[in-house]
Structure formats: C-alpha cells, structure tokens
C-alpha cells in the first residue's frame, strides 16, 4: 500500500510523466474504502464494481482541475456517493419502479447475494438499514460503519453538521423500531 500523503500524490499527479503512476497509487490507497462505501449503498458486487470504476474515471478526468479547496479524501467520497445515488435513480427510472419496490429488490438481492455471508442478526440489521430513506441510509453507513467525523460528512454531503446529527438520530430510532417489530 502506498505511503504517500494526499498532498504528495497530488503533486506527483501534476507531473505529466508520473501521472499514471500517481493515479495508480491513488486507486490503491482508496479503492477499498470507496468500494465498501458504494457496496453498502447498492448492495450488489457487480454494480459496485461498475460504480467504482466510473468513480475513478471521473477522478482521473477531474483531478487536473482539483483546486484543493477540500481534502482529496472527501472529494473522492463525494464523487462515489453521487455516482451511487445516480445509479439508484437510473435503476428506478429504467424499470419504472416505485421507491418501495426497488428497496424490496435490494433486500431480496441481499438474500441471494453469494458475497453476503452475514448471520441472522446482520441480515436483519442490513434489511432495516435498507428500509431507511436513501440519504439517511448514507449518513448511517458513514457514521456507523466508516466511523467518519461529522465535519467530513458535512463536506461530502454538503449538509450542516446539525442536520447530519438529526439524520443519524432518526436512522437509529427507525432501526430500533424495526428490530422491535421483528
């Protein structure tokens, strides 16, 4: 794994001769984190793979104009999140599915996914998470699984810290209710 800092990677990327090498290092450094972030949103491995590739293609095209107003890490997460949400929207409009039906499909794919090896409690937890509205689900995943700071989340999702805290609080309450019902 690369030991380069984000700043060093960006400096390296600006050198045209080393651009490919720098990009390869960026992919190696962030592929795992971004993969899991996307996977928890779209559930299926194949879809995650497509979205991750599209995310890095966008990063490749946009990195030259990256002004470093935000951290590289939050910028990458923002692209991955937007790509995932765009993918979900496309799926819903492609099959003209209402929101509830599409989430049911995701739950079914959780049952049939050969790359899901969780026990019964984990399956229940992930199903309860899938019942949350999209944005709330992303907030919950980022806070609970990725243990991200609210400040970074606010930068990625372009929302206030207060709104994110409220969103997480509501998400936990809904999951608790779902657990009690089952």
């Amino acid at each position: 794994m690369s030991d380069y800092s984000d700043k060093e990677l960006l400096t390296l990327f600006k050198n045209i001769e080393k651009r490919n090498f720098a990009f390869n290092l960026i992919v190696r450094k962030y592929q795992v984190k971004l993969y899991w972030h996307i996977r928890k949103i779209v559930i299926k491995h194949d879809d995650t793979d497509d979205i991750l590739q599209n995310t890095f293609i966008k990063v490749w095209k946009g990195l030259e104009g990256f002004r470093e107003d935000s951290k590289l890490y939050t910028w990458l997460y923002r692209i991955a999140t937007n790509e995932s949400l765009t993918y979900l929207k496309q799926q819903k409009t492609r099959y003209l599915l209402p929101l509830v039906d599409y989430e049911n499909q995701l739950k079914e794919s959780l049952e049939s996914d050969e790359y899901f090896n969780g026990d019964e409690i984990q399956r229940r937890l992930h199903k309860a998470i899938l019942d949350l509205p999209e944005k709330q689900r992303i907030v919950f995943n980022m806070k609970y699984f990725d243990e991200m700071k609210y400040d970074d989340m606010a930068e990625i999702l372009k929302t206030s810290v207060g709104a994110l805290k409220a969103s997480y609080h509501h998400a936990v309450k809904k999951i608790e209710k779902k657990f009690k019902e089952d």
Binding site: Q31, Y35, L52, Y115, F116, D119, I121, Q122, H126
Partner: peptide, 28 residues
C-alpha cells in the same frame, strides 16, 4: 457492541482488490 463482535458480512471475489488497479489502468 454488535459492530465490535461481528465481521463485515459482505465479501468480494478472490483477488478483487489486487486486480482492480490494473483493470482501472487498462480502462484509463
């Protein structure tokens, strides 16, 4: 507590993260 006691329930095909950078390079 639940998070501390459990592993990531999702998995990836074998060697996925080893191959991904070279696949990405080809696509670029």
């Amino acid at each position: 507590k639940f998070k501390a006691n459990s592993k990531n329930p999702f998995s990836v095909p074998k060697g996925y993260f080893d191959d991904f950078p070279s696949r990405m390079q080809d696509r670029i």
